[in-house]
Design a protein around this nucleic acid. Structure first.
Lengths: 153, 153
DNA sequence: TCGGGTATGTCAACATTCTGACATGCAACC
DNA sequence: GGTTGCATGTCAGAATGTTGACATACCCGA
């Protein structure tokens, strides 16, 4: 209905649609949609892929660790892991010598599927990076980290 | 369990946690949590606030317009609007002369509540902006827009 | 040794959001 | 006029996520 003019908005600078938070939300929504589409052909959801990916980089993480790393609650990660366990993509000892946290690892199937999915997802990431002019990638990452840190405390 | 060292990760550069997508997700999660906390005292959720905010900047938007502007489906925005209608914060004509799209506007109560909520939310946004060194804000916004555009097509 | 304090895994209830579907309304084109 | 295409609003069901709660397990100081 209303026309969108992202390049030259016909509004004062304090328009909501010009705020950083809105742009951040917009970029995140676009990334989420692109990843969702890329992962569909591999039969994975974004949380499932995130779990596998983090697990490949940091083998032996517990359920609570994975929840924190992927920004969801322990309970949500619990159902994600149940799905991955049923699919035989991850493995976890039934009991552990000390504590309650059980270390999780990728199975051979999990590693295979992850490698296949990574090709699709990394293509998405490449599209992102190529859209950035010059050496702005490092600056963008640094700024995102500063923002996250400022908001966390 | 694993120690986090965001400044100097003890891993190769191709670690997932170093990717742009991960940092984007992380920053968005932090923003979402901060806004959630700021809005709780006003009795608003983030989608509800987004709806009011966009509606203040672009009065007369339809349900589908608002859904697109806030990156949710029409169906989701429908239930958000139902809550705002029941709370008397927005208003919408029962019928319209032409078409199906009904223009929505803020009520006086909606404008009052939005103004109060904006103070809390803008404080969050200020925290974000202050965390950015020098004149990097404009560059960050521009980069986020480029990323979103590259992923949308 | 024995409490607090904290972290974990999991269950249940609730909310939020999505996908699928359908009816309605308009425009364009034959 | 009729039909095709597209956008909108809304219903129903399923998937996904959350908060709240509880039992368990470690750590640490009194």
């Amino acid at each position: 209905m209303k026309n969108r003019m992202p390049a030259q908005p016909p509004h004062p600078a304090d328009d909501v649609l010009d705020h950083v938070g809105y742009r951040l939300k917009r970029a995140h929504a676009a990334l989420r949609a692109a990843m969702d589409k890329a992962l569909r052909e591999h039969g994975l959801t974004v949380p499932q892929y995130s779990c596998l990916e983090v697990l490949a980089a940091r083998p032996g993480m517990s359920n609570a660790d994975l929840a924190r790393a992927t920004f969801v609650t322990r309970q949500s990660m619990n159902v994600v892991m149940r799905g991955l366990l049923d699919a035989g993509l991850i493995d976890r000892p039934g009991t552990v010598e000390t504590g309650r946290a059980r270390p999780t690892t990728l199975t051979a199937d999990g590693q295979r599927l992850l490698r296949a999915a990574q090709e699709s997802v990394y293509a998405v990431e490449t599209r992102m990076v190529r859209a950035l002019p010059g050496r702005r990638l490092a600056a963008l990452i640094e700024d995102l980290d500063r923002v996250a840190q400022a908001l966390d405390e």
